[in-house]
Design a binder for these strands. Structure first.
Lengths: 258, 258
DNA sequence: CGCGTTGTTGAAATTCCTCAAGAATAGTGG
DNA sequence: CCACTATTCTTGAGGAATTTCAACAACGCG
């Protein structure tokens, strides 16, 4: 693995890791499992004692209603942890599944403990959990108060920024979105048919260009303006006012597990 | 303050605090501020270094769109922390305001550090953050995939259980809901008019009884069945399989801040 | 008592969904 | 490499849920 691993890239968004931090991360993420598309990673009600980290591919969290309708409540992209909460909460309140073929790192309780022994890494894990929460709030706003067209556009803006952050967007602002329109519908609280029409609208307005599962955004600012996208909730700008050195010295946020 | 303080009740849902833990909590929550209804507690973009804890009254997190429409993304009830994340994230991505007159405890960075020095308290704070996240997921499902009638019913079920947990529900399953229908609409992604009609429907079906701002639920199981409410996402059952003593001994989850 | 906020209801407009069917695409086995 | 099948995408038309607009009643507060 190289420094360009998505999960290291992602954690470095917030904490300026040193070589020791990175080595530890690489070392603890050595247990890797490959999964096919549309397989279950974690079932609701389960109490597994392993943390999953997406190395490549797309996965999602979702919930299902009795009538079979599904709500996807998070996209898990390369660099995202699936279930950091597993050591605190008693049981899973949602399912996690792959959307595409995935490579996942498996971390034991000891691995997480070791990672949390490093203040900067611990802080980065906390940060990653809190960003997940911020994304949930934004999605709630998206579904609750934006029109269907804006919802689709907003989700694409978010994916553009999140994927860019882990090096998965090319120079022309295009990225692979290996997700069906049905899955987008389950994410946005819409039906497949309507998502399809909204995507068509965005294409007709030249806000996006779709070829297969590749999305190209010709005018990023234009798309963001259209749906009122502001990236602040992703907290991708590391806070310069809180020097990492001071943090490291004070061993702030050491979170130890067992 | 007595052992019956809502915030202590809430934290005890998960961690079996001892007298020392409770004393520390009471001690650190001594700085109290009273606020009137509909005042701002935290503004988006701000970087305050104080954590707020609701002692009495209702508050909410919310986000606003450019066109003025609002989405409430969390209800903050007695015992809930408003902004535990403040020491990690650089800036607030949402606003927090009171809905009713409130009493809030103010915790400094040092207070939080002190609380996190106690493993059981630290774990309870983590737990409270993760439950907030679980509630966000359920709300997303609620808005994304349930009918308007079910949405209202589901929110009432959640409030019933959360308020019961902090001792604010009477024996006949009634509780005070000091929230306007407009605020419910902004929570559920609906309009005031429609919320009003849905409440009427629930009344007509005898699933709830409303008198002023008091809600009575004559048949709790019936209401839950109607909207498919399952309380598991609130994680109110402390996990008996993980003895607190072992936890305490191992100093698990000590989260230190500065 | 008067005034602003909140609750309530009706009717028309709009968004989004459902149903249905055909076209394109991807995957599979021969 | 092709035929076959399943999944996904696309479009149309009609229907249902929800919103918008508008008006008035009820309530709470100074």
């Amino acid at each position: 693995m190289s420094d360009r691993d998505p999960f290291i890239l992602k954690l470095e968004t917030f904490a300026a890791l040193d070589e020791g931090d990175r080595d530890l991360l690489r070392d603890r993420c050595r247990r890797i499992v490959a999964m096919r598309a549309k397989e279950e990673i974690v079932q609701e009600g389960a109490d597994p004692q392993v943390v999953h980290l997406v190395l490549s591919g797309f996965a999602c969290r979702y919930k299902i209603l009795a009538d079979g309708s599904r709500q996807i409540v998070a996209f898990l992209l390369p660099g995202d942890f699936c279930d950091l909460h597993v050591f605190i909460l008693d049981e899973h309140d949602h399912n996690i599944a792959t959307l595409t073929d995935c490579r996942l790192a498996l971390l034991s309780r000891e691995d997480v403990t070791a990672l949390c022994g490093r203040p900067r890494v611990a802080r980065a894990l906390w940060w990653s959990t809190l960003v997940d929460q911020a994304i949930l709030r934004e999605w709630l706003l998206n579904i609750g108060r934006r029109s269907a067209e804006e919802r689709v556009a907003h989700l694409l803006c978010e994916l553009l920024e999140r994927l860019r952050n882990v090096g998965l967007v090319s120079a022309d602002n295009s990225f692979k979105l290996p997700v069906t329109q049905g899955e987008l519908a389950d994410t946005l609280g819409l039906t497949v048919v309507h998502v399809n029409r909204m995507i068509r609208n965005l294409r007709d307005m030249d806000l996006i260009a779709v070829s297969g599962r590749q999305i190209m955004v010709p005018d990023v600012e234009g798309l963001k303006r259209f749906c009122g996208f502001r990236a602040n909730y992703l907290h991708l700008e590391r806070d310069r006012s809180r020097p990492d050195d001071a943090l490291a010295e004070s061993e702030a946020f050491a979170m130890r597990v067992d």
